[in-house]
Simulated assay, not measured.
Amino acid sequence: MECVIGVVGRDFAVVAADTSAVQSILVHKTDEDKVMVLDSHKLMGASGEPGDRVQFTEYIQKNLHLYQFRNTIPLSTAATANFTRGELATALRRNPYMVNVILAGYDKDVGASMYYIDYIATLHKIDKGAFGYGSYFCLSLMDKLYHPDMTVEEAVDLVDKCIKEIRLRLVVAPQNFVIKVVDKDGAKVYARREYISDSPPDAAPATASATATEA
């Protein structure tokens, strides 16, 4: 039930993802960071099989660092997207990575940009997007509320609306999310959204007990 969300605004990009590490019906942890900082001005939000997701995102991150050490300049966001697509396409014919990616970055001459890359190496430049079951709700909200000149606060508010809808409508919904922003000042964590129940722990049993007594 993973979900990765991305939005491009006026001069920034926002990437958010749930923080659940799940196997089958078990939740192993709720603080897994699925939005990797590739370098000072790039973010990669990934969903998919946990092992593939961790290995592939780290592989891309280390190769970007290697390129910069060898050539003294970093890859642009577009070049990083094409490199990532190339690696997925190569693996597709050998041992595929079951990973879907939203890549966001900021370049001085281009500004903020975002790319959608799925596990079969499909690449698209986008202004908004989402992966996972939560995308069924997020994409419709984005179609209605998104506009290109959004401020950071407006974009994060849109992401919050998506998170609220996911928690409300998805049968087994991830509760905690991390939101990261990349702009001219670099990539950073903007906020964390942790679910806090409004009801006291014994509220549900008490209600059930009262109903049974009346019956």
Rank of each mutant, 00 (worst) to 15 (best):
S135L: 14
Y116H: 10
S197T: 08
R167G: 11
D183I: 05
Q68W: 07
L158F: 05
A121S: 09
D157R: 06
Y97K: 01
R192E: 14
S199G: 05
S197R: 13
G51T: 05
P74H: 07
Y195E: 08
I25K: 08
I117K: 08
V178Q: 02
A215C: 05
V15L: 14
V110N: 00
P174H: 07
I117S: 07
A204P: 06
D149W: 04
K188D: 01
V101Y: 01
Y115T: 08
I120E: 00
V35M: 02
K184E: 09
T122F: 04
E154C: 09
L103D: 04
A17S: 14
P50N: 02
E165S: 10
A46H: 00
S140C: 10
S209R: 06
G186H: 11
T84F: 08
D31R: 12
K161A: 12
P96F: 06
S199I: 15
K62R: 11
A21M: 03
S40W: 09
K42H: 13
V99N: 00
Y136S: 10
H124R: 14
V156R: 03
Y59R: 13
A187E: 06
L170Y: 06
R53P: 03
V8A: 07
V178W: 02
A13S: 15
I120P: 03
E32H: 04
M114P: 05
L88K: 07
E2P: 13
A212K: 01
S40N: 07
A104P: 06
Y195A: 13
C138F: 00
A16E: 06
V35W: 00
C162A: 10
H147R: 10
